[in-house]
């Protein structure tokens, strides 16, 4: 797999990361190195092996349906760059 400049531009846009046009080429090269490294995994024969999302057989305890968190708007808003009347405040977005 190989990424070209256009793909990198698109990925950057989807991730909302601003990458200057001049850096796209370099970044494509770096990403391709990383992908090449990961592609070593293709050497392993996985025929007949179920895809899995975790190597762990462990199944955690689920949470009981009990309210034991929240209730502190100030704490939730503590890191917000801007807030008013208990709301987070952001630049206007209308879709």
């Amino acid at each position: 797999m190989s990424l070209d400049k256009d793909t990198v531009r698109r990925i950057a846009m989807l991730a909302r990361i601003k990458v200057p046009e001049a850096d796209l080429e370099t970044m494509a090269g770096e990403l391709n190195n990383i992908l090449g490294w990961i592609e070593q995994l293709d050497e392993v024969d996985t025929d007949g092996v179920e895809p899995m999302t975790s190597v762990s057989d462990f199944r955690p305890e689920l949470r009981a349906d009990v309210v034991n968190d929240g209730g502190d708007a100030e704490r939730a808003l503590a890191n917000a760059p801007e807030n008013a009347n208990g709301f987070f405040v952001v630049p206007k977005v209308i879709d």
Binding site: V67, N68, D69, G70, G71, A76, L77, N85, G86, F87
Partner: peptide
């Protein structure tokens, strides 16, 4: 573990 009750004051039912 934050509550789901409707109509609460803003951001009072928000866990981290």
């Amino acid at each position: 573990g934050a509550s789901t009750a409707f109509g609460a004051e803003p951001n009072t039912q928000v866990s981290l």
